[in-house]
Computed example of a mutant assay.
Amino acid sequence: MSNILVTGATGGLGKAVIENLLKTGSPDQLSVLARDPAKAADLQAQGVTIKQGDYNDYASLVAAFKGIDKLFLVSGNDVPNRVPQHTNAINAAKEAGVKHVVYTSFQRKTEDGSSAAAFIAEAHLITEKLLKESGLTYTILKNALYLEVLPLFMGPVLETGTIYLPAGEGKVPFASRADMGAAGAAVLTGTGHENQSYDIANNTSYSFYDIAKILSDLSGKTTQYVSPDAEEFGTALVAAGVPAGAIHMTAGFSVAIAHDEFDFPSTTLEKLLGRKPESAAEFLKAAYKL
């Protein structure tokens, strides 16, 4: 195995990548980048090298990336500052002599800024362009929306019996973060992925009508799906005391779903895993203990 460094290793996706790499390879060839190394103590205990670094601190990135062959670059969670942070990471990778960067991007239909999810899209599009122009070998993982966002979007759906979202009849090939982590590890340790862009998604797309039916079947109680317009949705959530930031995020993604912004099912994830990805029914059964 090459010398691999994973950023964002204290977050969900980075941790899933590391867990899968540890199943197949030696920890002495694995490093992680952490702003606060204490938060990665569990990985250090397993023999993984912890390198202190911050996307905002260019020198720390160059030092951390020295001697690394493959960099798994998890997109930063500081959305307004993603572009300068990712620029730092790509330039530091180049300066440090990294050979291959694997970047976690996202699925999308629209690239002209008109999507309801443009607030998320912009930094990913710029980062992909920077990577392709950098001269570095790259693999771009265009990740579907996580199955894990469903409980966040739907709230206490089993109590209310209603999914209330302005997502229309739009469909999404939701996939689990665990499966995406396993696919990321497969790309890092496999061959033939140079300068490729992959849709990392389930091979089935689901509307919220489908999700409501799955929940009804699993629970034995009827779950209905109601799709208001975005304005009505926002008004209802303000009245319920939901914070403005959460309303903006949920409404933006839901309207983008309604426009089929993320509807790109793919068999690539299944091929990388060597098995069927986790289905929405399997995920919801576990998530809601049904």
Rank of each mutant, 00 (worst) to 15 (best):
I211G: 01
G168T: 13
S207W: 11
A16T: 01
F153S: 03
G168P: 04
F208N: 06
A186V: 09
V172F: 03
L147D: 00
I140H: 08
T223R: 02
D179W: 01
K221T: 07
G53Y: 04
A246S: 13
A40H: 00
S205I: 07
T235Q: 14
L165H: 05
L131M: 06
G76Q: 04
G113I: 11
I214Y: 00
K271T: 15
D36T: 15
I18E: 11
A123P: 02
A59R: 10
Q224W: 01
R82I: 15
H193Y: 15
P37H: 13
D199H: 12
Y198L: 13
P151S: 14
A280Y: 02
D229I: 01
M154S: 10
S216N: 07
Y164I: 02
G11K: 01
K23R: 15
G67R: 15
S254V: 10
E282S: 11
V83W: 04
A186P: 03
G170V: 10
T139M: 10
N20V: 10
E19H: 14
G11V: 14
A246C: 01
A212L: 06
T204D: 06
T137A: 11
T137Y: 04
G220M: 05
N91K: 15
A212G: 03
F72V: 10
V79M: 12
A45G: 03
T268C: 03
H86W: 04
V226I: 14
F65S: 05
E194V: 05
G8W: 02
K129P: 00
A175G: 02
D57I: 10
A280I: 13
S176A: 15
S75G: 05
K142Q: 15
E133F: 13
I18T: 13
L5D: 00
S75I: 14
A63V: 05
L61K: 06
N195T: 04
F72S: 11
A116Y: 09
Y146W: 09
P84E: 10
S216L: 09
A59K: 13
G161V: 08
G53L: 08
F208L: 10
V17G: 09
L61G: 04
A236H: 07
P265G: 05
V157G: 05
K51H: 14
